[in-house]
């Protein structure tokens, strides 16, 4: 699992596993900049999702991520920033 990157597909998989997916949302459409709230996810769904990302990628996200990260694009960026920090030089 060296040189990991976290993709939108990874995020969608983890969202589905931890919180399900709103049937009225087109998950395969362009959702990178759609706010999580509009995708049907409340803060608890994001808390669960962050927990699963932390476990799977062995990183620790700041508590503020749940409140401040509003879109999939930003979440993917934040997770990759952490992966970069923890990756071997």
């Amino acid at each position: 699992m060296d040189n990991q990157t976290f993709t939108l597909e990874d995020l969608k998989r983890i969202l589905r596993e931890g919180a399900g997916a709103d049937e009225s949302v087109d998950f395969d459409g362009d959702i990178l900049d759609t706010e999580f709230e509009d995708l049907g996810y409340e803060s608890l769904a994001l808390l669960e999702t962050c927990g699963r990302i932390e476990r799977e990628y062995a990183i620790t996200l700041d508590d503020s991520v749940v409140g401040e990260v509003r879109t999939p694009r930003r979440m993917v960026e934040v997770v990759n920033e952490h992966l970069g920090q923890t990756a071997p030089a």
Partner: peptide, 8 residues
């Protein structure tokens, strides 16, 4: 029930 509810 939708999957959003199944998870919780």
């Amino acid at each position: 029930l939708p999957s959003r509810l199944m998870a919780q």
